[in-house]
């Protein structure tokens, strides 16, 4: 378990309720969670278990109904942390080239925005091209989004989420809409990025192999109302490969996760 000082994200007895058709629905019930700096955590669970809500709360897009949220040791209102966000839908701006799309965070995030006008054709462009090389898109910098395939757009989406070097990367099923081969290839890309830059990552997914491939630690959540029912380290060495994700340990680990989700009563986490 991480020590007190290097905890980047801390949820303390967090609950979220909202109104749906007149009746209150509890999306999250008393969730407590600590994520250490540099950790890669996967949130998994059946749909509607509130895992995306956790991400939205951490991103500051929603306010909790009760409980506390600390980012970098401070109450969330302090906004001390820089955050990158990527969803399943890449939402590139159709009127900008891929290069300029990826530069968008540099245009609005404080340390960079003051230099944007001066550096957009110099050091910022170099930064973007370095990111694009990392995901294998270097020839597509000056293409427009409609000229790229879904997998390529998702690579660009990852670049946009990472370009301003966020301390915290929030991924909401970013590989969910891709075919199997592209998805596994991007797992490799994501692993390389994480190993090279070590951002803290919260990944929401319902792909168990994805969680086992990418994460250091998996958090399993129960169906609504969302509660954490298991919190485990992934017992697999890095760097992980696609073939390795079919190994006995990996498959056993995935099956364990699967049993937790389908029948939470019989199984308890460590």
């Amino acid at each position: 378990m991480p020590t007190r000082q290097d905890i980047l994200v801390e949820l303390e007895r967090l609950s979220l309720t909202f109104e749906a058709g007149g009746a209150p629905v509890t999306a999250l019930d008393n969730v407590s969670l600590k994520v250490a700096d540099g950790e890669f955590v996967a949130l998994i669970g059946p749909s509607g278990c509130g895992k995306s809500s956790i991400l939205r709360l951490v991103a500051g897009l929603q306010k909790p109904s009760s409980g506390f949220l600390f980012l970098g040791g401070r109450e969330q209102a302090a906004n001390a942390l820089s955050v990158g966000l990527a969803f399943q839908n890449p939402t590139m701006l159709p009127w900008l080239t891929i290069e300029r799309n990826i530069m968008l965070p540099l245009k609005v995030v404080p340390p960079f925005r003051q230099q944007y006008r001066r550096e957009r054709t110099r050091s910022f462009r170099d930064k973007v091209h370095e990111m694009l090389r990392l995901v294998g898109l270097e020839q597509f910098a000056s293409h427009f989004p409609w000229q790229l395939s879904g997998g390529m757009l998702q690579r660009a989406n990852l670049c946009r989420a990472l370009i301003h070097e966020p301390q915290l990367l929030l991924l909401d099923e970013p590989f969910g809409a891709l075919d199997q081969f592209t998805r596994e290839e991007l797992w490799g890309v994501m692993q390389n990025i994480w190993q090279a830059r070590r951002p803290t990552v919260l990944l929401v997914t319902h792909d168990l192999r994805e969680a086992a491939f990418l994460a250091e630690r998996t958090i399993v959540m129960s169906p609504r109302p969302g509660r954490i029912i298991s919190d485990m380290q992934v017992p697999l060495a890095r760097p992980r490969t696609s073939e390795q994700s079919y190994s006995v340990e990996a498959v056993e680990f995935c099956q364990h996760l699967r049993r937790l989700i389908s029948d939470p009563a019989t199984e308890t986490g460590r």
Partner: peptide, 12 residues
């Protein structure tokens, strides 16, 4: 698109 607004909101 709401996702795009979310991405920018998260960037403050």
């Amino acid at each position: 698109e709401p996702e795009l607004e979310d991405v920018l909101h998260a960037l403050k």
